[in-house]
Each structure stands twice: as structure tokens, then as C-alpha cells.
Design a protein around this nucleic acid. Structure first.
Lengths: 201, 201
DNA sequence: GGGCGCATGTAATGAGTTACATGATTGA
DNA sequence: TCAATCATGTAACTCATTACATGCGCCC
């Protein structure tokens, strides 16, 4: 679980209380993930139960109680394990966009274009933001790398959307998603030893 | 939910039974998502309960019973709604890889390089597969678009990994993830009106 | 005095996965 | 006859989200 990796990793760098951890993620690492407080507190509770972190109370002035979490040696090992898995694995990286893309021909072309234009605008805004963020970071630092990686993919997305919209203008999308299904049909058909050429169930 | 969109969309093109639907996704649309049978049956049951599809029994020869699902007008409307949302929205697209990337400096450089090399190899394999798949498709069809989109991102990923590994060879990664935390610390510190320059909790 | 920020949680819900359960047919 | 494929599900579990609950301090 990558959120666990993130939490343990940050605690490895420095012991912190939950709210503080959540703050770091929200304010400085928001391009990495959107980690909710409830989720984080949950992860910390689990990590404590499994002995990956210890929890000690601390009071500063008369602010509310804080529970400082600190990585244990056991937690260090867990962190290493999660990190290795993350770095090695090629995440199956599915794109939710592709599912919509598959049904592009089910919408009038003008509507599809309008919706894609909104998406493109939103991507462009995010790119601008990230470019500003990347400029604020020292090159060759880990945080810089994550920003640059994200940026590269967003630029790819922008280029893709441009390509797609160009091709939607020139010619409409062919509606042969059915071609994808046919093979499966043929399959089912074959196993039934049927005679009709189009033997739907 | 994108799996719901996928199921309804495929049923819009053609009524099918659950196993057949699962087969289409597994065998022909595996680059879109990894949809498990249990999940799909669940989605179909939910969709039926909400009146998006009807379920009718069918027997073909003496094969097991099948339950054919067909999209209702209500289901068509739902499909349109989900499709529009999918096309318009710029998915917050977080990259799980980035979390590992953030902690790159926590691993010996040689190990990091070895793990990244494995990832790169795995990406390269997937690219080769997709290139073969894309060649089998007619251009400007929806399925072609999804393959091409996926391919573009994988190539970006491959290029990124190459860049990263080059930069790991030349100079080691700086270990200043802490710089990210500092701002949050300063924050916390300020609110406590403390005097020490490094006032950790 | 009122709202925001600090600080911690719980409960309910939902989406998805794994593993299990069942039973028929078909092909090697 | 044995494994694979066809075909459908249920149950238990995990992860994450939303909404709720609490209460103090600080600033305007």
C-alpha cells in the first residue's frame, strides 16, 4: 500500500504527530496523492498495532494533545520492503480516461469535443501549476523528481488530447467497438457448434 | 465509477451475459482495466437493482444457465451521464511511482538502479505488446485510440526512467526530502511562538 | 463572540479483492 | 479420467471515503 509507504517514509525522516504528517502531505506533497486525515489516522493506528511505529503523548503549551509517532526498527524493515516493491514494480497503470475514450462514438462529435476541451483546459492549468512548483525546487532532489515525472506525463496527456481533438475534427470516429466483441462472440459461437453466421445468444 | 461505465457501455452495444462480458474485458480490453469476475457480477447485480439493466434467463443447448443483461432506457441515461463525466474530468491522475521516487535516496544507489532497471524492462515489454496490439487495429477506431493513448504514456514512462537512471549514474540524489517538511515545521513552530531555531516537537 | 485552525478520532458506507462453493461439459 | 472452460454467485476482508463528534486556542 503506497499510502503506508508514504507515512512510514516521512516518519523515517522525522518523527511527527498525525496532524503534522497530514499537513506535510496536503501542503507540500499534494501532487503525490490526496491523502485524507481519516485515512492517515487509520494507517497510523494500524502501523502502531503491527509495531511499525510507537506512539507517545506530548503537550506543547496548552495546545491540544499530540501523539508523536516514531518509526521502530521493525517499521524500518517494513519501509524498505514497501519501497523496494514500489520501485521495482511497473504499476499496471490503467487509465480511467481510456474507458470513456472507448465510447467516444456514443456521443455526438460536437459534445465530445466540448467535453474534451474542458479536460484539456484543466490539464493545462495543472501543468502551469506544476511548472511553477518545479521551478521552486532544487534540481536532482527527490521532490524535484516527482514533480518532473508528473509533469512529463501531463504534457503527454496534453499532446494526446490535442492529437485526439484534431482527429475528431477531420473525420468522425468509426463506431466499430463491436469489432472487439466479435472475437468473444465467435468464441462462444464455436463452442456451441452453431450454424448461423451471427448467432447471438 | 468507471467499471460501471464500462459494463453499461458494452451492454449498450450488445446484450450479453455476465461471463461473456467478463470475457470481452479480459481478452480484448485487458489494457483498459483488470476487472475481476466477482466485481463484475456485483456491478451487474447493483445495476439490475437500480433498474439500469434487465436480467433474463437463457439456456443454450445443455450448457449452464445464462442470465442475459440488457440496457434499459434508464440505463442508457445513466451511461450517458457517466460517459460525460468521464470525458470531461481530468482525472487527478496520481502516480503511485512518485511515492517510491520520493524516497529514492533512502536506498543505496546501486540497489535503486537495479530495481528501476527491472521496472524499465517491464515497461519495455508492455510497450512491445501494445505496439503489436495497436498494429492489429484499424486506425481511428475507439479501441485504437485507447491503445495509442496508453502507448504514449508508456513511452513517456520509458523515457523518464532512462533520464532518471542517467542522472543516478552521474550524481547521487540529494537527500533533502526534509526541505519539504521544513515549511510545515516552520508553520507549527510559528504558531507556538518558540525561540529555538530548530524547534522540533 | 464567532469562526478558523489545531488535534484526534469513530461510524457508516462503498468499492474492490480473494477465496470459497457449485456443478455441468468438453477435450486430451 | 482429469483438467480446463463455462457459468454463477457468496462471504470475509481490506482500503478508503464521508460525515460526524469533540474541544481548546487564537485572532478579528
Amino acid at each position: 500500500m503506497d499510502h503506508e509507504l508514504l507515512a512510514l517514509g516521512l516518519l523515517k525522516l522525522q518523527k511527527m504527530h498525525g496532524y503534522q504528517l497530514s499537513d506535510v502531505v496536503d501542503k507540500r506533497l499534494s501532487h503525490l496523492t490526496d491523502l485524507k486525515k481519516a485515512t492517515l489516522y487509520n494507517i497510523l493506528a494500524r502501523a502502531e498495532a503491527q509495531g511499525f511505529v510507537t506512539k507517545t503523548v506530548s503537550r506543547a503549551g496548552n495546545r491540544p494533545e499530540r501523539f508523536i509517532f516514531q518509526l521502530t526498527p521493525h517499521g524500518q524493515a517494513r519501509f524498505q520492503e514497501l519501497l523496494r516493491a514500489n520501485l521495482q514494480r511497473a504499476h499496471a497503470a490503467y487509465f480511467a480516461d481510456d474507458i470513456g475514450l472507448l465510447f467516444l462514438s456514443e456521443l455526438p462529435a460536437a459534445q465530445a469535443r466540448a467535453l474534451l476541451a474542458e479536460k484539456r483546459a484543466s490539464v493545462a492549468r495543472t501543468i502551469a501549476e506544476l511548472e511553477r512548483a518545479v521551478a521552486r525546487h532544487e534540481p536532482n532532489t527527490p521532490a524535484y523528481y516527482t514533480l518532473r515525472h508528473h509533469l512529463l506525463h501531463l504534457r503527454t496527456e496534453r499532446a494526446w488530447l490535442a492529437e485526439l481533438m484534431r482527429s475528431l475534427k477531420q473525420r468522425s470516429v468509426r463506431q466499430d467497438i463491436l469489432a472487439c466483441l466479435d472475437a468473444a462472440d465467435a468464441n462462444a459461437a464455436a463452442s456451441q457448434k452453431n450454424r448461423k453466421p451471427s448467432p447471438k445468444t
